[in-house]
Design a protein around this nucleic acid. Sequence first.
DNA 1: ACCTGAACACCGTTCAAGT
DNA 2: ACCTGAACACCGTTCAAGT
Lengths: 221, 221
Amino acid sequence: MVMSGSQDGRRHSRDDVSEMALRLLDEYGLPDLTMRHIANALEVRASALYWHFPNKQALLAAVSARILRPMEDVRVEEMTVSEAVRRLGARLRECLLAYRDAAELVSSSLALGLVDSPIRPQLLAVTRRDEVPDPLARVAAEAVMHFVVGYTFHEQQRLTADSFGLLPEDASLNPDDVSASPSDAGEFEEALTMIADGLEVVSASARAGARPGPDGRAESS
Amino acid sequence: MVMSGSQDGRRHSRDDVSEMALRLLDEYGLPDLTMRHIANALEVRASALYWHFPNKQALLAAVSARILRPMEDVRVEEMTVSEAVRRLGARLRECLLAYRDAAELVSSSLALGLVDSPIRPQLLAVTRRDEVPDPLARVAAEAVMHFVVGYTFHEQQRLTADSFGLLPEDASLNPDDVSASPSDAGEFEEALTMIADGLEVVSASARAGARPGPDGRAESS
DNA sequence: ACCTGAACACCGTTCAAGT
DNA sequence: ACCTGAACACCGTTCAAGT
């Protein structure tokens, strides 16, 4: 029974490394995702990883890309712009919730510019079809992405925090303190709706008011 | 010439520590903001900091609170809801751009729940006046906060990256590649406008459609 | 109340050398 | 092409002990 070499074959590929790193991330969390632990799990010394990646950030970017891969499966062709905003946002949240600490990891890879926007290409496909100005659509893609990543980062932190029993304290004594919100998935979707509605308002007024201007922004009259 | 004790007096307060930490953050960046460096600058050993703070994250939260302090100065009483969203968002970005790596630092303190939302209290003041349902206003505050922090995190990373000359490479060879955008502050404001417009649409339909429902969400008819 | 000294158990990264 | 061995220059945190 011969395998591709990711199990025991002593010699590894970039993909083996990032796959194992994702597994360890999910099992032990980001703080324990060290070069030595990853190397150990691959039965290799830490220095070996530097043949595959120039540094730890690059390795983490590869893990981020793996986490975001399912975004490519979202089929947006038949959706309205507003629908696409909501579905892409919801799917992004699912991708991030699928692995422990994934939102924190992806947040930093995104900020460092080491992975591409997981939303932009697909959103642009539908906004172009509906003649929404490109710069406007790009701004919307950024707004959705940053909101979803930030929201899910916070949400995921609360989830793993009280799975470790770190928060209860006197929670039952002070029911008015809703700072640790009840993980309301409805409020997430409401925020996406808000952004989607905002995009429609702004792009409608961009189509109506004055010529679109060189960058697609409309001046109010 | 006697000073309050933050300069040379050998003995320090919590505030001395976070003030010095903010200074070092701005000068040397987050990766070099170590317990030993902070202690050194205060002419003290690293272990001394653990009398003032239980751990590094708590110290960093105090620094985050310092960075966000100017948010309290925003006077929103006379603003419309939409105006408040835009001004609070713009001011938050200014707070984060005022110190090196501040967006990254605040992003993590916020996600860990170690600092309060810098937007919510003031936004709630104006939405209550205009009878926007509270839960809706809270969602909007989260959307604005997460968007601004994420956007500015990314923006600030680009700024310090190319101040270190790390990005140029072949930028001039491929002018179509706008991945490193021209730091357009206009696009930031456009995104805030989008969210503000979205909030108005949703809250208008919440006021009109059906009874507001127990949580302020309206069902579409 | 505030700090030192010394230790513990780690980090990411480099680089000559091996096969 | 892929990895080892050994080192370098660090980390955050704890805790008895000092003043």
